[in-house]
């Protein structure tokens, strides 16, 4: 395993930043009227987005889903514009049109968050096709959940991507729950990576709480895609520590199960590993925490002080 110290610290940083960002959302969404709509978090799953995005280059594209905050921050989205959009303010990255559920940040090549379950993969096919058509050295990575894997659109996308050898990485974030249904209640196979065989593409199941394992798997899939060998499926096994959304009481998730996964949190895991290996000091980590705190507080201040759009702005941006 050869991952530069810089890269490992980058992964720790984006995990930490998105955790701090979402921890703040946990509190903010309890305040009546502050965060419109749903609040859907990736707490505990940060190793997937942070590991995957660290293996991608800035010109690579990601297509994401309900639990997008970590993916987008790891891809380099600007926290102020993201927070303001979650607040549905005019200064948000989508001028208040998308809210938390449809964050689109094309400036960091994250043009689509779809919250129609299973809709991301066909769109990722189109992005990857454009990369292949133009002869670019870029790839597309598509994040989707174990629930989405039951959608027919995911089958269609995988079949077409494999048939055309598109530069596409399917990243299945298997967090055990789809809504209130456990994995075994909606899927007959324990590991979704086995489905890759049906499309003659490589499929690998990795520990989704081990950011370095995710990084290596996505890096390998990226190299394969760039070599013209087509798509890969990387299944990252992780756990949904919070509810489907913040109003979900999680009555169907055993308390002990949640606790056991909280102990497997990817952030202290990498932190302790880096400190043990002498890549990071405790002081470095404290500095990172302080930086995350000030970035998130600044994002909240920016969002709070930003105006809402004027009602008539609802009429803009329908057509080009």
């Amino acid at each position: 395993m050869k991952i530069s110290a810089e890269k490992q610290k980058e992964m720790l940083w984006t995990m930490l930043l998105s955790r701090r960002f979402e921890d703040e959302l946990v509190e903010l969404c309890k305040v009546e009227g502050k965060i419109p709509g749903m609040t859907i978090l990736s707490t505990g799953q940060e190793a997937v987005g942070s590991g995957a995005c660290a293996a991608l280059e800035p010109e690579d594209v990601i297509i994401t889903n309900h639990r997008s905050h970590n993916h987008l921050l790891a891809k380099g989205a600007e926290p102020n514009a993201l927070m303001a959009e979650i607040y549905c303010k005019r200064t948000g990255c989508n001028k208040g049109k998308s809210g938390t559920l449809h964050l689109a940040v094309p400036e960091v090549n994250a043009p689509c968050t779809s919250t129609v379950v299973g809709a991301g993969p066909p769109i990722a096919v189109g992005q990857a096709f454009a990369q292949q058509y133009k002869g670019e050295q870029r790839v597309t990575a598509c994040f989707f959940g174990d629930g989405a894997a039951a959608e027919g659109s995911v089958h269609e996308a995988m079949n077409l991507a494999a048939l055309w050898r598109l530069p596409l990485i399917f990243i299945c974030e298997n967090n055990v729950y789809a809504g209130a249904q456990r994995h075994e209640e909606h899927t007959p196979v324990p590991n979704l990576a086995v489905r890759a065989a049906a499309y003659a593409m490589p499929g690998e199941t990795v520990d989704g709480n081990d950011v370095l394992a995710v990084y290596l798997a996505v890096q390998e899939a990226r190299e394969r895609a760039l070599a013209g060998e087509g798509p890969s499926l990387v299944e990252c096994k992780t756990y949904r520590c919070r509810g489907h959304g913040e109003t979900d009481p999680q009555h169907y998730q055993p308390r002990e199960e949640i606790c056991s996964w909280l102990e497997k949190c990817p952030i202290p895991r990498l932190r302790d590993d880096l400190i043990a290996r002498g890549v990071l000091t405790a002081a470095d980590y404290q500095e990172m925490e302080g930086r995350a705190e000030s970035i998130v507080m600044e994002a909240v201040r920016f969002a709070e002080e930003s105006p809402y759009p004027d009602p008539e702005e609802a009429l803009e941006d329908v057509l080009a």
Partner: peptide
């Protein structure tokens, strides 16, 4: 989906 993704990409 191919159309949507490819159109966004130019």
């Amino acid at each position: 989906g191919l159309a949507v993704g490819a159109a966004e990409a130019g």
